[in-house]
Design a protein around this nucleic acid. Sequence first.
DNA 1: ATCGGCTCGCGCAA
DNA 2: TGCGCGAAGCCGAT
Length: 465
Amino acid sequence: MTHPARVHIRRDSPENSAGRFVLYWMQQAQRARANPALEEAVRLADERGLPVVVGFGLDEHYPDANLRHFAFMLEGLAETARELEERGIGFVLRRGRPPEVALDLARHARILVCDRGYLRHQRQWRDLVAERAPCPVVEVEGEVVVPVEAASDRAEIGARTLRPKIRRLLDAFLDLPDERGPRRRAAADLETLLDPDDPEALLATLDVDRSVLPVRRFRGGTSEAEARLARFLEERLEGYAEARNDPGRAATSELSPYLHFGQISPVAVAVAVQGSGAGSPQDRAAFLEELVVRRELSCNFTWHVEDYDRFSALPGWARATLSAHAGDPRPALYDIEELEAADTHDPAWNAAMREMRETGYMHNYMRMYWGKKILEWSRSPEEAFATALRLDNRWFLDGRDPNGYAGVAWCFGLHDRPWPERPVFGKVRSMTAAGLARKFDVGAYIRRVDALLRAEDGKQMTEDG
DNA sequence: ATCGGCTCGCGCAA
DNA sequence: TGCGCGAAGCCGAT
């Protein structure tokens, strides 16, 4: 059952008596399963004997989105549309700014239900819809385990201050929504652009940035996400606490692209891991730390810090120390084109950049090293911050996400503490190639990336080599 | 190989 | 008001 704290009445106006259906404006939670917003729409529709229509606004000019993101998203939406169809729920995809698509469909809706996002524009879209809809608007949180405002009313200083607050509430928010049975079809007079059996046809017509190509490594969709979760539980949870930080080993869940597009529910993942017989209690705790504490600390950051995508969002001590060292000589200087081309003197860094560029993903430990080096190799910390964010948002399938903003900012001192003063970094935690080599087999990571790149090229397609 | 020191601010005990 | 301690650090001393 959905926890009542997930549900917010955003507009408390009389129901639209001319409404023919309950509208679920789907934007963030792009899935047909374990979706509390969808199930709330179904419940409201059942009470009124109405059909449910799911509407999605596809914005070709969505901030920083490119062909790679759209290909992954449309694969997922096609599957979601097919699953909704099986439940007798219509799926309508239209081009346009999401709030405009939602408001247009809302003219025929008795009630509008929406989901939730934690970035600036996602909040603005929902504010606009709540302000202008001709019917009640209900917002349902389904993208974090513990809703951000239930967990904390302020910008947390670090994981250590958020962790106890999350822990207290965790069990109450492992709440999967009840799913109701099939229903009668919605009125079929609503035009949609997506053929659920051929998402590529729509992709081909989109006026989007085509300079970033789709990847083979990640196929979009809920069933793919669930297959990865199952593989993680079977093969990777055992030993996760110890292996997760070694970039040379494929020991992580690699679920972040699916979580970013809402193709899998974080609550469903948490429940599956907690209920799994695999791994030790430490392994399960280590994964829940990543999935819940760290991921939701990122949402706390973008929710409470207005300028989360700028240098000014960093804590005062970090800004002060980085500025004090802005004039230090750099061991190397690269511009954004050289970085993007993975053309530096550092083989481990280059491998990380290629993993990002060619496969849309990077091992989490390398994300830290990658960002720390951009700080070290740029003319100023402000420029480094902007460069890291640009690359993050452009190449990652899970970019343009609270985790991306918090992850980049962490490299510049966010959610961290001061460390001994060093050139360029000041008191911000540094990382070095020597440290990387001390802890891990860097060659193993480089070889693993080489294999991933060959798979992208299609030169090595067999599973067992 | 392991250990302490580096540094700031929160949260809790006193 | 004092004290412990923290996402993954580094370095130099044992």
